[in-house]
Amino acid sequence: MNDPRRKLVVDDLRIGHWSRRSGTFALACDGLTFDVAENAFVAIVGPSGCGKTTFLTALAGLIPVESGRLELNGEQISGPSRDRSLVFQQASLFPWRNVVANIEFGLKAQGRLDAEGRARVAELVELVGLSGKEDKYPRELSGGMSQRVNLARALATDPDLLLLDEPFSALDAQTRELMQEELTRVWQADSAGSGKTAVFVTHDVPEAVFLADRVIVLSSGPAHLVEVVEVNLPRPRGPEVKRSPEFQEISDYILSLVMSQNKPGRRTEDHDSNAALSR
């Protein structure tokens, strides 16, 4: 049952939500099928509005599954759980908590903020490059710093599955590049088991290729699987990887897959997937 190559199983998955505006049922995913192996870093790309974020929200347990299998370690996901944590698109930090207290939130919520928990938080502060900023409040942090806290908060509970919802999309180009490198570094270096299983949603194809072991390309909404592309670039990956011909080749291929999904007349807004989040 616990086949490490099938840590996360998505089988004929259907997710949708009632749209408040039109009062109709909008499908976000229909017949979505793929697996994620243990310790793999998987990126999900697809055209805007295809339901990537909705899928991730369901994976986090925030919205219910209509039908199909969505199993982690052989158990159907039916709500939020301690074995998953989410790095939010917007940092969503609590402005009344300082950096350390924000990172501690998950541990505190789960009653695990003991000496060990505090030590882990201190270690994460160091790891994500927030040393010296422990006592700062969110309003004093830049966008990149906020996302570091967001990432550390998600890692603090030592989740079995780490979910990342376009965490760098709101950052400027330079900060984004930097954060991508930081994320690979953190992901490889985290002491609580290097290379956690991670699912990273993005619309930025080079970002997906740079970060992931496999890139899952989704169709335009309602999303189903188009192709799973293996990224056989060696790790650890530095910024120079982005200039290699292999990187270019894989990126171009995936980009062509995504672009071919942008048929005229399909939804192109991201509104619906965002509406699902704020429900």
Partner: peptide, 16 residues
Amino acid sequence: QSHLQVSRVFCASRLM
């Protein structure tokens, strides 16, 4: 809403 979602994702109790 985002704060409530953080609370839900990290499985905070209603009281918390």
